[in-house]
């Protein structure tokens, strides 16, 4: 464990807690893409298949349980909660899952480190995580106004992956045989997807203006 990875995990944890806080306190999910939340639940479900068979550490198991629990409860809130689901804007959140899930599945079947079910599922979860934010970014472009909790959510998600890249660089130089192209490329693609959002986020923060994404 290094400081970059710990900071990355804490930032990732903060992003889901910010989201749960928003939904739970103001009983609204306005501006949140259910599609992205469902994709993240799928990411964790396919990545943590070995949560009970491959014990790494107490920290690792606890964090996996938190991520699984929070992502599925966010989906439940938006879909099932009697008050929250009314603020879900399904006419705007129209990104088709399959445009994302199928290419990731095909790619995971073609490019993986071992052709076993768990390895393919794990690789699929990496590719899926890289693009899972797309429905949310599309929704933000459409609704154009970004309330600061949603902005913080996307910002923290991007920051977590950027910190993970620093972690991979650190581990590459400090551990031998630490070479995992699939993880690195998927992580890099994911971080680049956030790059333009970061740009506008900092612009609005610097000018102390409301965050507006260009059409």
């Amino acid at each position: 464990m290094n400081i970059f990875r710990l900071a990355g995990d804490m930032t990732h944890l903060a992003s889901v807690l910010v989201l749960l806080l928003k939904i739970h306190t103001i009983k609204s999910c306005a501006g949140i893409s259910l599609k992205t939340q469902e994709l993240y639940a799928l990411v964790f479900a396919t990545r943590y298949l070995d949560i009970f068979t491959n014990y790494i550490s107490f920290y690792n198991t606890i964090m996996k349980l938190i991520f699984l629990g929070s992502s599925f409860s966010i989906v439940w809130y938006i879909k099932r909660h009697k008050i929250v689901h009314r603020s879900y804007d399904k006419d705007q959140d129209t990104f088709r899952h399959w445009f994302i899930v199928l290419p990731c599945l095909v790619l995971a079947l073609l490019i993986n480190e071992r052709f076993t079910f768990k390895e393919v599922m794990w690789t699929f979860s990496l590719y899926l995580e890289a693009v899972a934010i797309l429905p949310q970014l599309v929704l933000l472009q459409r609704t154009r106004n970004i309330d600061n909790l949603t902005g913080q959510y996307v910002f923290l998600l991007g920051a977590y992956r950027a910190l993970y890249i620093l972690n991979w660089i650190y581990r590459y130089f400090t551990e031998d045989h630490y070479i995992h192209w699939i993880t690195w490329i998927a992580g890099l693609v994911q971080t680049l997807l956030y790059a333009d959002f970061f740009y506008y986020y900092f612009q609005s923060w610097k000018n102390n203006a409301k965050l507006e994404l260009p059409a």
């Binding site: 995990d9 990732h12 070995d50 491959n54 790494i56 550490s57 964090m63 794990w122 045989h177 630490y178």
Partner: peptide
Amino acid sequence: NSRHPRKDEL
């Protein structure tokens, strides 16, 4: 397990 060091990440 040491088989897959990368799987120690979340």
